[in-house]
Each structure stands twice: as C-alpha cells, then as structure tokens.
C-alpha cells in the first residue's frame, strides 16, 4: 500500500520537477531550475484559449446537469410510478457503459448535425454521463429530507418553483455542492467524450494535453510537463475543495445498489 502511494507520488513529483528543469539528462535531479517552461507552454499550446474553453465547457456542464438533474432526482426520490425501474435503468446505463463505446456513435450523430467540433457539441457529449450522475447522487440526499416540510410549504401556498427555491435548495445545499463539484472534477478529467467530439478550437485541457504528449518529440518534454502541471493544479484545487464536502467513495460508487 505504502509502495503504491509512494510510486504515485513519485510519478507526480517527476512531472513537477521536470516542468521546472532547465535540462535533465541522466542525473537524479535537473541541472538547474527555471520557470520559463510555463511561459513557453502557455504561448506554444495557446493555453489561454484552451483554458477558456475548459472553463466554459465545465461550467456549462455543471450548471445544465444540476438544473436538469435535481428536478429529476426529486421525482425519483418522491414518487413511485409504473416504469420507475426502466427509468432508473436508463439513468444508470450511461454510467456503466464506457464512454468510448457510445462516444463514437454519438460523435457520428453530432458530426451529421454539424455540432461536433464546436463547444456546444462538447458540452452536449459531456452531459450524457453528467446528468445521470447528478440524478443518482442527489436522489439519496432528497430522500433524507422530511416530506412534511414540503407539505407545510404547500399549505402556505408555495408553488413547485417556490418550493424548490425556498425549501429544497437551501436544505439540499451540501448535496448540490457535492454533486456539482463531482461533476466538475469528472468533466475536467473526461477525456474520451471530449476527445471524440472536440475540434481544434474546442479542446479542453485534458485533450490538449493528450495531443501534445501524442506529438511529443516536436516539443520539449519540460513544456509538456509544465502543461501537465497546469492541468494537475486545475483539477486538484477542485478536488481538495470537493473532499471537504464529499466522502471519497462517492467519486467511484456511481451506482448505489
């Protein structure tokens, strides 16, 4: 166990050290340290553009999936209906099937609609796992809320919209935060779907990183690693925030049995 953690930390450290190295050939540590690779990575890989796209995609996906997912989770938590099992299966499937399998047909459809290669296409593709994920994460949170609170609000004349806004959303804040952060972290890291649907102007950070490593040899290893560090920092910040609110097992236990 310690061996595993040590190796993971070492591989992260190797990337970080290399990103600051002047030259690093055949020694334990680089000959000298410099920050200039970050500057060159920034201009070389047009990171300002990539970061803008990443932020746009990630926040659009988080906002839309919360907006669509929470109401659906409410219905799943509060109602029993005839085809509930079918609907549940429908929401579980996109999380069980690996993105590569449905990503290729999805990309084909998006290309025929001229949506692939655009930011909108990337957002649409990323919604496929995000919306069901929000639904499955939020359903237990909503089940925990006492239905009497809603009944009371109804008695005083609150409509469904006001019920959501003034009763459910404040009570659900921790759950919404958790679901939102998890979707955020997962969307930053989502490689396959973005890779299959993105065009040159709609790459997110992880896809841009893939292309630079793929075309390695042309670029210096240090500037690739500098980009990897930028990606790592972008993810880890959110992960650390998320871990304050979420039990880590929630990141993987996508399907509650």
């Amino acid at each position: 166990m310690g061996f595993f953690v040590l190796n993971v930390l070492a591989l992260i450290a190797a990337v970080v050290v290399d990103s600051f190295a002047t030259t690093w050939l055949g020694t334990w540590l680089p000959a000298g340290f410099t920050g200039r690779w970050y500057g060159s990575a920034w201009t070389e890989f047009q990171l300002d553009n990539v970061l803008m796209v990443t932020v746009e995609v990630v926040f659009a996906v988080v906002a839309i999936s919360l907006l669509l997912g929470i109401p659906a989770a409410y219905a799943m938590a509060r109602r029993t209906f005839r085809f509930k099992r079918v609907v549940l299966l429908l929401f579980v499937l996109p999380l069980l099937v690996p993105p590569m399998t449905y990503g290729i047909p999805l990309a084909t459809v998006l290309y025929s609609l001229h949506l692939a290669g655009t930011i909108n296409g990337v957002i649409l593709a990323n919604l496929v796992p995000a919306v069901p994920f929000v639904i499955l994460v939020m359903t237990p949170y909503i089940e925990q809320i006492d239905p009497k609170l809603e009944a009371a609000a109804r008695v005083f004349g609150a409509g469904t919209f006001r019920l959501f806004l003034h009763v459910l959303v404040p009570l659900l804040a921790p759950g919404i935060l958790a679901a939102g952060l998890l979707v955020l972290v997962r969307t930053i890291g989502m490689f396959e779907l973005t890779f299959l649907t993105a065009g040159p102007d709609s790459q997110t950070l992880v896809v841009a990183l893939y292309y630079t490593v793929f075309a390695a040899g042309v670029r210096s290893a240090q500037s690739i690693d500098a980009m990897a560090v930028i990606y790592m920092v972008a993810t880890l910040i959110w992960l650390l925030i998320a871990l304050r609110f979420v039990n880590p097992t929630q990141l993987v236990t996508r399907v509650r049995q």
């Binding site: 591989l11 990337v15 992880v206």
Partner: peptide
C-alpha cells in the same frame, strides 16, 4: 480518510496525466 484522499488523486488526474507521469517516471 487521509489515505482515501491520496488515492482519489490518480482517479481524478485521469489517464492522460498518469500516462505522461509514467513516461517520465518509468
């Protein structure tokens, strides 16, 4: 809890970063 937090890192970093890290490390 600390251990699980450390172990979550490779999951969230994603396969591309792990690949790049392993290329350098291994």
């Amino acid at each position: 809890r600390a251990l699980t937090a450390i172990l979550v890192i490779p999951i969230t970093l994603g396969t591309v970063l792990i690949a790049e890290g392993l290329l350098t490390y291994l």
